[in-house]
């Protein structure tokens, strides 16, 4: 387990290095100029040159990258000139609220997808299954903003049941104190994630049900309830867990769009704003953090995989 963790950490660092190189390059290839975006359209060339010199922006890209990595290793993700604050402090204040949004939706999605996936698989090709498949495919094929806008249109504008904007509290606890405002963003993200997971779960259970040991379980005369909880569930989750790890980036992307639609104060919204204002340090910082989260998520998925499946030892 220890050697495994070490090796995976090594791999993770490599991935992270690659990620920073690519993001760094891409952002330098973008049209637009950091100095110009900060100093405004009326800045004269001399001011811009002075700014570039002050911030090492006139040095070669390699030096700039080395500088970025050096800062990164010291836990410094950079400084946003646009917002006039460090990316670290921005993340410290925004990230907890994202944990609320993504965490809640993920938990809800799994809580709904696992039982519906089981029911659909056990009633395969019957009405329940067809309805479930229809719902999942409809949600799955929609870009995340469509269910978000539909939810706003129906529940806020027409029915006036729920606010269309997320609570603007400054802390995670503050967000939870206004649950009404959380309903629509969490619901949107849950539906999108659910669509994915229920499909995974359904096919995993179908595979498990076809295994010979299911026949064994029936021959023992076990009640159906016991067969599902003891023999189907764990074996099906083995397949689902890996897929969960792989789907983290997708969920985070969906989260980004959800935050924009509901004006949810989180990292996603920051990223969106940074992208529209050429705030490179913020974009770069957030990309690195999302990269770390993805790598960690996959690592956790693999560890859970090994816990669920006794044949796999790390």
């Amino acid at each position: 387990m220890l050697t495994y963790t070490l090796r995976r950490s090594g791999q993770g660092l490599l991935v992270l290095a690659g990620l920073t190189v690519i993001t760094f390059l891409l952002e330098h290839l973008l049209p637009g100029n950091i100095a110009r975006s900060i100093l405004g359209v009326h800045a004269n060339p001399a001011t811009i040159a002075a700014f570039d010199k002050q911030n090492d922006l006139n040095r070669s890209i390699l030096v700039q990258y080395a500088h970025f990595v050096d800062q990164l290793l010291h836990g410094n993700l950079g400084y946003s000139y646009t917002q006039n604050r460090s990316v670290d402090s921005m993340l410290a204040s925004e990230a907890p609220r994202d944990v609320v949004l993504v965490g809640l939706s993920l938990a809800l999605a799994i809580a709904i997808a696992v039982p519906t996936g089981i029911v659909q698989a056990m009633r395969r090709n019957r009405l329940v299954d067809h309805v479930g498949t229809g719902i999942a495919f409809t949600l799955y094929s929609m870009p995340p903003y469509v269910p978000a806008l539909l939810a706003v249109e129906i529940f806020s504008i027409r029915l006036h049941w729920l606010p269309s904007e997320a609570p603007q509290a400054s802390t995670a606890i503050g967000m939870l104190e206004h649950p009404a405002g959380l309903v629509l963003p969490v619901l949107t993200l849950t539906l999108v994630t659910y669509a994915l997971f229920s499909r995974y779960m359904r096919s995993a259970v179908i595979d498990t049900l076809a295994q010979p040991f299911m026949h064994t379980a029936r021959c023992k005369g076990l009640p159906e309830r016991v067969i599902v909880t003891r023999h189907v569930l764990r074996n099906s989750l083995i397949a689902v867990v890996t897929l969960t790890g792989l789907s983290i980036p997708g969920i985070l992307t969906a989260g980004l769009i959800t935050e924009e639609v509901f004006n949810f104060p989180g990292v996603g919204l920051e990223y969106f704003n940074a992208a529209t204002t050429n705030d490179f340090p913020t974009m770069l910082g957030i990309t690195v953090v999302i990269g770390v989260v993805t790598i960690l998520g996959n690592f956790l998925a693999d560890v859970s995989y090994a816990i669920l499946d006794p044949r796999v030892r790390l």
Binding site: Q211, P212, F213, H215, T216, A217, R218, C219, K220, G221, L222, R230, H231, R234, N235, I238, L308, D309, P310, R311
Partner: peptide
């Protein structure tokens, strides 16, 4: 099933729950 009538089948590799 499993009480008055027991069943043993061919493939012991896949007939047992691996988890």
């Amino acid at each position: 099933r499993g009480n008055q009538v027991g069943l043993i089948f061919q493939d012991p590799m896949s007939g047992l729950n691996p988890t």
